[in-house]
Write a protein that binds this DNA or RNA. Structure first.
Length: 137
DNA sequence: GCCAACGTTGGC
DNA sequence: GCCAACGTTGGC
């Protein structure tokens, strides 16, 4: 089991939209590092869902339901997508400022490389954010 | 709306 | 292959 965090601008695609749709293709990644992270995802992996630009908080957990395949929206280039389904909404959203204020979370991509849209998390980091979100899985 | 950080592009 | 210029992202 691996753990991840993805970012989405909520006015483009929010966690609530994922819940409403039941599942979603995670399309449009055009960054090699983010793509490689997508490709490392395994079915069943859990993915924290972060709202960028607006909200600026981790709002829920998604699950990888289909491992990577070619991005149908890519006209050229070697890009990949996965399919995600909603897993559980956090009881309490975890704001970026709280993450930045938490010593155990100083190494995650949100803090170290704010522009990366798909990033791995250590199990301990994932668990810490769940605790902050008052959520158990 | 600004701007810093980062990634990509393209001229040499 | 280097590096300057440019574009994009995303927090503030």
């Amino acid at each position: 089991m691996n753990y991840w965090l993805v970012k989405s601008e909520p006015y483009v695609f929010s966690y609530d939209q994922l819940v409403a749709d039941g599942r979603s293709i995670w399309e449009g990644v055009r960054n090699y590092q983010a793509r490689n992270n997508l490709r490392a995802m395994k079915e069943g992996d859990l993915v924290l869902f972060y709202h960028s630009n607006e909200g600026l908080e981790v709002v829920g957990i998604a699950q990888v339901i289909t491992e990577f395949y070619p991005d149908p929206t890519a006209e050229k280039g070697d890009w990949s997508v996965v399919d995600l389904a909603p897993y559980r909404k956090l009881a309490r959203a975890v704001p970026l400022k709280d993450i930045k204020a938490t010593p155990e979370l100083q190494n995650i991509g949100l803090v170290r490389n704010p522009r990366l849209s798909v990033m791995p998390l250590e199990a301990g980091e994932f668990q810490k954010i769940l605790e902050m979100g008052e959520t158990e899985i």
